[in-house]
């Protein structure tokens, strides 16, 4: 009994992960990583881990992304790989 929502989320997560490490633009990578975090957060919410989901939403998708962006704007967006 593969629940379809689970499977969908999981495949999205994997796609996001691959995209995040393969996009050449770091800012885009960071944004994709934010999406990844948010999907993770949904996944955990479906697993009943509300606290973790909440934390991931605030920390992973929120602050962490902002910190990445802050750092990238002060350095460079380009990436060779």
């Amino acid at each position: 009994m593969i629940s379809s929502i689970d499977l969908m989320l999981l495949s999205l997560v994997v796609i996001c992960a691959i995209a995040a490490i393969n996009v050449k633009d770091l800012l885009a990578a960071t944004m994709i990583f934010g999406v990844y975090s948010f999907l993770m957060c949904l996944l955990w919410a479906t697993m009943g881990a509300v606290d973790v989901a909440f934390t991931e939403a605030t920390i992973g998708a929120g602050i962490s992304t902002i910190l990445f962006i802050g750092a990238i704007l002060h350095t460079t967006r380009r990436s060779k790989d």
Partner: peptide, 17 residues
């Protein structure tokens, strides 16, 4: 495997999650 330091960090976060 990645040479870009930010990519390494993103990878680290993915690993952790």
């Amino acid at each position: 495997g990645k040479r870009n330091l930010v990519k390494k960090l993103i990878g680290m976060n993915i690993f952790q999650t």
